[in-house]
């Protein structure tokens, strides 16, 4: 059965990407942040510049005792990491990496599917925040909810702007319609999308929900061992998904010189470059206060996103 084999291969590829790229980005973060701060970072694990540090971390996490507080809502507490992690695996299947149907599965309503499923990931943090029965976790959960409310919207609006430009909601379809001048045309939307995505992933400088120095990692305070590791994996898988999506929607995905042969490489390079920016921002900017977070979303990002939609609509009607 050729079809069965093909589907199996595609799923395997998606799964391997899901397991490998987050680790690559995590290791890069260790090394890049270290060098930006005048340190060396991990140097011992695996021999060459500590390349196996995250593997060692994983082995360590797997052997740690799994503590569920006596007061916690046991089932929800245990399930939360799975809810946080799975959506990012499912999103990866819809992101095209090359021309000619080089995608896990071409979903008609791709952009819609991707945004809807990404939203589910945040539910994991909310479940963890409530089920822990811990004051820090509850605060973290509340902050997560507030952040989701504020930043989901600019993300939706700017994604809709790209759908307008392409005249389709299918991700491979958008890339087929892509022209180079879309990059300057959609650049404001791209920045808004990327920033809102960072906030949704709770990455610095938008990490008030997990702020380790004030609310002890928020929703994850009570987590240990494997379950904590899964939350970390979800964060880095989230970076992969956000960078990949931004590359596909706003930077032309596989488009570039020799796209027919090297399309996948362009997607990978753009994704990794954006992931580098995510790391860079963490090393550069201090954490935003909760009110500054809300202000940025409602008074800057949303008006900008609306302006981008107006611009996209006018230009698109003018040229067609």
């Amino acid at each position: 059965m050729n079809d069965t084999l093909e589907v199996a291969l595609r799923l395997l590829a998606v799964f391997v990407i899901f397991l490998v790229l987050p680790l690559v980005i995590g290791q890069t973060e260790h090394k890049v942040m270290a060098h930006m701060q005048g340190r060396l970072g991990p140097m011992y694990a695996g021999g060459f510049h500590g390349w196996a540090q995250l593997v060692a971390d994983g082995v360590k996490f797997a052997q740690k005792e799994d503590v569920v507080p006596a007061n916690a809502d046991r089932r929800v507490f245990q399930l939360a990491p799975a809810v946080a992690l799975l959506p990012y695996l499912l999103v990866l299947v819809a992101i095209p990496i090359g021309p000619d149907n080089a995608v896990g599965e071409a979903i008609d309503a791709g952009i819609f599917f991707v945004l809807a499923v990404m939203g589910v990931g945040v539910l994991g943090s909310l479940m963890a925040g409530w089920a822990s029965a811990n004051k820090f976790s509850l605060l973290g959960g509340l902050r997560t909810a507030a952040q989701l409310l504020a930043y989901e919207l600019p993300m939706l609006l700017t994604a809709a702007s790209v759908a307008m430009a392409a005249g389709t909601v299918s991700l491979p379809g958008m890339l087929d319609a892509f022209e180079w001048w879309w990059v300057p045309w959609q650049i404001v939307g791209g920045v808004v999308f990327f920033v809102a995505g960072l906030a949704e992933l709770q990455r610095p400088p938008f990490d008030a929900p997990v702020a380790d120095s004030e609310i002890i990692f928020g929703a994850y305070t009570e987590y240990t061992g494997l379950r904590f590791a899964l939350f970390l994996l979800a964060e880095y898988a989230g970076i992969v998904v956000l960078s990949g999506l931004t590359a596909v929607l706003f930077l032309g995905g596989w488009h570039g010189p020799f796209a027919d042969e090297l399309g996948w490489l362009w997607t990978l390079l753009k994704t990794l470059a954006l992931a580098f920016v995510v790391i860079w921002l963490r090393a550069t900017y201090p954490r935003l206060r909760e009110d500054q977070l809300q202000k940025l979303a409602w008074t800057v990002l949303i008006p900008l996103a609306l302006a981008q939609i107006a611009l996209t609509g006018v230009v698109k009607v003018a040229i067609s």
Binding site: A109, I111, F112, L153, L156, L157, A160, A163, M164, G167, T168, V169, I309, G313, K316, V317, S320
Partner: peptide, 12 residues
């Protein structure tokens, strides 16, 4: 904004 998506495919 959900209604934007189906509209976006046909508006031009």
């Amino acid at each position: 904004s959900i209604f934007l998506f189906p509209w976006a495919t046909v508006f031009a």
